[in-house]
Design a binder for these strands. Structure first.
Lengths: 259, 259
DNA sequence: GCATCATATTGATCAACATCAATGATAGGT
DNA sequence: ACCTATCATTGATGTTGATCAATATGATGC
């Protein structure tokens, strides 16, 4: 799966006519990284880009591996090149909730780096992932040298705040069923494809427990809710990490109607 | 009440030796505004400060009055000089929750101004308030002319995101009782004073319904919970907007212990 | 292919909170 | 000071989702 995604990434840069760059810089160069356009480094000039590229470290990580732990001091910033990274917050009783998911093209840990505060969440790899690390001294140089970086982080922070505000409102006002549907729709938008025979097919990239942590409910409640969704004909679950939505409109209606 | 707060504000600037400035600029000048140090305008040089001061509009507003409505386009930024402004989000059923409170020295509506998106919440005056309005064209000039302003807004946004993340986690993990205690502690920190006879006395600056909207619970649940807190000896409620905490440690323990 | 361990589901029960309906208290206007 | 409208409290009841315990399913190693 990871291999496929990486190949896809490589092919894309070739297709875009950057084959010489790709050769010159190697397949893992930030210069040719197809995800960079989605990050705060998108407007970097060559000079700064090369700086990042020289000093970055990149690793392939497996599900369960940790980028940083709640309480750690920030050492730098992480870029998700491929895969999926969850930010998890543990409470006093050892329960955890997934605060957000970080998809490819996202920088993780910028908030604590910029505010110089300890990590509030742990960052945990949820799927085979390709992660780049950029040390805080480099980020500091970028912020001082490239004004666009500060602006991008401001935009990013504004967006994160908006998303959190929505999540905050959602968790107080709507039911587990509607929230689960919402999470499934997010997965559908990212991983979905239309099979004309059965409907909109997509992967659920996390285990049931993490799906529960994402919705903010107990795993048992998620089981019961998925069963109900199947009974209602809204979503089929042919496997524990597969889902099919026969009719998107039914789902939209249900999210709106349900509490 | 408002009068008292405004007098207090005036006196403070006099006490701080700015009596000439205050005379020169009038009691409502941004130049001498004691709240400015808390806002994103704190590092402004005289030139920009005068610009703000010339173009700002200020008004005294009463509880229930609206600064802006959910869905409106942003026209500028609001500074809370005195009083209290709540940001309220309405859901489809007409229920509302208070997403955050804005105390004196806070700018309101910066997020939508900077991201050029419609207001996601309504801003509603909760106590007699003194509010200044700064048009977006002025804010634009400040951001372009004074680099500190952009930095301040970045810091502000990072902090708001952190607060929202905490609220998000809190609402999913802890009980109404603990959340209510937390909200009461916030009021205590801001409005509290120690009376040696009875304990820590403070005002609750909002009506019961809004206290409920702040905790994210039904007003009836707040009633029952306050009753329980009295029965447990944690908090006394001698009036609907007054509270007394006999022993802070008991409250801290209860917040920690309760779910 | 089987044993083992983790993960997922199901059932039964319980606690927390919402809702509805009724009553009691409070504040603002005349 | 009274009237009225709004706000707060209380009680009765219903719903949602958590928890505990048991079973089932699936994955991994040998």
């Amino acid at each position: 799966m990871l291999i496929n995604m990486m190949l896809a990434g490589c092919l894309r840069s070739v297709v875009h006519g950057e084959i010489f760059m790709a050769d010159e810089h190697g397949p893992n160069s930030c210069v040719t990284c197809p995800r960079r356009q989605l990050t705060e480094w998108r407007n970097l000039e060559t000079e700064h880009l090369e700086l990042v590229n020289r000093h970055k470290h990149d690793r392939i990580l497996k599900p369960g591996e940790i980028l940083f732990n709640q309480g750690d001091e920030s050492e730098g910033i992480y870029c998700v090149k491929d895969g999926l990274v969850g930010e998890r917050r543990f409470d006093a009783e050892g329960h955890s909730i997934l605060v957000r998911l970080n998809h490819p093209g996202t920088t993780v840990g910028y908030q604590e780096l910029l505010s110089k505060t300890p990590f509030r969440n742990s960052a945990e790899v949820l799927q085979d992932s390709h992660i780049c690390f950029i040390n805080k001294s480099i980020v500091q140089q970028l912020i001082e040298g490239a004004p666009s970086v500060g602006q991008r982080f401001l935009r990013r922070s504004l967006k994160d705040a908006q998303d959190l505000e929505d999540s905050f409102v959602e968790v107080q006002t709507i039911s587990v069923k509607a929230r689960l549907l919402h999470v499934l729709m997010i997965f559908y938008e990212r991983y979905g494809r239309l099979d004309p025979d059965v409907g909109h097919v997509f992967d659920i990239p996390v285990a049931r427990q993490d799906l529960a942590a994402l919705v903010g409910a107990a795993p048992e409640t998620i089981s019961r809710t998925t069963r109900q969704l199947q009974a209602d004909g809204l979503v089929q679950f042919p496997g524990v990490r597969k889902a099919i939505i026969p009719d998107l409109d039914l789902v939209f209606d249900a999210i709106g109607a349900d509490t």
